[in-house]
């Protein structure tokens, strides 16, 4: 799994690629919590490179969403692959996450 972040005009884009599972979710957890703690509460997470996410990975995304929502920030996901989208659907996450088709659309949501 690779995590990159870039600062945009009105939000921070975090790109996650590869496999997010039980063995590495804590890396993402740390990263996201650091960002939120440092006041970056406008986050756009680009999942275009992510080809696998397990429930533990989903848990981190849910935690991040909850914390940012409480901090009155905004947390948007974009560019989900088809199978990842299915997992989100099975999980019921499509109902609670704001998901955009691509990064451009995501940025516009802020």
């Amino acid at each position: 799994m690779e995590i990159t972040e870039k600062k945009e005009r009105n939000c921070t884009v975090v790109s996650i690629s590869g496999r997010l599972d039980t063995t590495n979710y804590s890396v993402l957890e740390k990263k996201l919590m650091e960002l939120i703690d440092s006041g970056e509460i406008r986050l756009l997470v680009n999942l275009s490179g992510m080809d696998y996410v397990s429930s533990s990975g989903l848990r981190i995304l849910l935690m991040a969403l909850k914390r940012i929502t409480m901090a009155k920030g905004k947390f948007v996901l974009c560019s989900l692959q088809e199978n990842i989208k299915e997992i989100f659907e099975i999980s019921g996450f499509t109902n609670i996450f704001e998901i955009c088709d691509n990064e451009e659309a995501g940025k516009k949501a802020f």
């Binding site: 429930s55 989903l58 848990r59 849910l62 935690m63 909850k66 997992i87 099975i90 999980s91 019921g92």
Partner: peptide
């Protein structure tokens, strides 16, 4: 109301 855990078995 969404709980953070419990997704695994659901999957």
């Amino acid at each position: 109301e969404r709980k953070v855990g419990g997704l695994g078995i659901h999957f």
